[in-house]
């Protein structure tokens, strides 16, 4: 049900862009106003969400470790899986952010005959996730050629590597194929695995359908329906220099693509996509496991009055003596 709602929402967004541009001719709204508004919501929302998370105290060390803790000198510490200092944490975070190390450990449980439960390694989610995120990043970098007038050589290099198969014209990008395949895998996975299907919400399906829509509209635009790319760059450069122009004769597919991206940007700060910023703030990853080295005191502890044994004895000394209980001080 939530999948249908999400799919219908994305279809409605596509239709909205088509109707708005083709029907009502609102190219200024869809080409300039909405993208600016979406970017503003994205930046302000992103900052606000991170600041909100930053205000949550993390008084104690709660890293999830899976290696030998720093101990006696002759016991070898696992410095990445159980870091005791900043360097280990940096390495751990780097591997987490760039290679999804914790997802690499993904397991799959299976009930076998017996009945016996068996666990096995399941790397598909990790692989598809990695493919999806990296291709998305490369696609994002490639798009900089629309937003920077003097395109940096690095962007050109990424583009040439990405299209080095030299299939067709315009050249086929490898990332376009891998990206769509990975998104489809991540989507089908949610339908196919019953347990995953059970816990999937509209908030899981909607971003997937939206990103799939963005990918499909981009591929359609580049390889099939075709638009005048010089006109597209004219518009995007207008946006980037705060000098908006809306060139005539851009295809509707371009506005569909742009509108879906605007929706993604505006939706971003309110969605699970915020894990892009949140991963840096996850205390189970970004803390060193030094609880046995440093004493962490809760920052909002108020002074507690402790009733010591000495005070107790002072209170009851006579009664204790009368009852024959030994006392420390006569």
């Amino acid at each position: 049900m939530s999948a249908f709602v999400s799919f219908a929402a994305v279809v409605a967004l596509v239709l909205l862009a088509i109707l708005g541009v083709k029907g009502a001719g609102l190219t200024g709204l869809f080409g300039v106003a909405i993208p600016y508004a979406a970017l503003a919501i994205f930046i302000v929302g992103f900052l606000a969400r991170i600041v909100k998370w930053g205000r949550v105290p993390v008084p104690f060390r709660i890293p999830t470790t899976c290696g030998q803790q720093k101990s006696l000198p002759w016991i070898k510490q696992n410095k990445i899986e159980n870091p005791s200092g900043t360097l280990g944490v940096l390495a751990r975070m780097f591997l987490e952010v760039f290679f999804f190390r914790s997802l690499f450990r993904n397991l799959k449980g299976e009930l076998r005959e017996g009945p016996k439960i068996a666990y096995g390694s399941d790397k598909w989610l990790w692989m598809a996730g990695l493919a999806f995120h990296w291709t998305f990043l490369i696609i994002l970098i490639r798009h900089l050629r629309f937003f920077i007038f003097n395109v940096p050589p690095a962007v050109g290099l990424v583009e040439r590597l990405d299209s080095f198969l030299q299939i067709g014209a315009p050249l086929l990008y490898i990332t376009d194929v891998v990206f769509l395949a990975a998104v489809l895998f991540l989507l089908i996975r949610r339908f196919y695995i019953p347990q995953v299907k059970y816990i999937s919400l509209a908030a899981d399906y909607f971003p997937l359908f939206l990103i799939l829509g963005i990918g499909c509209s981009g591929v359609l635009m580049r390889y099939f329906l075709k638009v005048n790319v010089v006109g597209v760059k004219n518009l995007t450069m207008g946006l980037a220099t705060f000098n908006p122009v809306v060139p005539q004769g851009l295809g509707t597919i371009f506005y569909v693509h742009l509108f879906l991206i605007s929706v993604l940007f505006a939706y971003f700060p309110f969605s699970k996509l915020m894990h892009s910023g949140g991963v840096f703030l996850s205390p189970t990853r970004n803390l060193s496991n030094n609880s046995r080295i440093v004493r962490h005191i809760n920052p909002w502890n108020y002074p507690v009055h402790v009733h010591t044994y000495e005070e107790y004895e002072n209170d009851f000394r006579e009664k204790m003596k009368a009852a024959g209980i030994p006392v420390e001080k006569e």
């Binding site: 970017l39 992103f46 900089l144 937003f147 007038f149 450069m237 946006l239 980037a240 220099t241």
Partner: peptide
């Protein structure tokens, strides 16, 4: 990163 297009031009 988010405002790269604006100041790079």
């Amino acid at each position: 990163i988010a405002t790269l297009p604006f100041f790079s031009n």
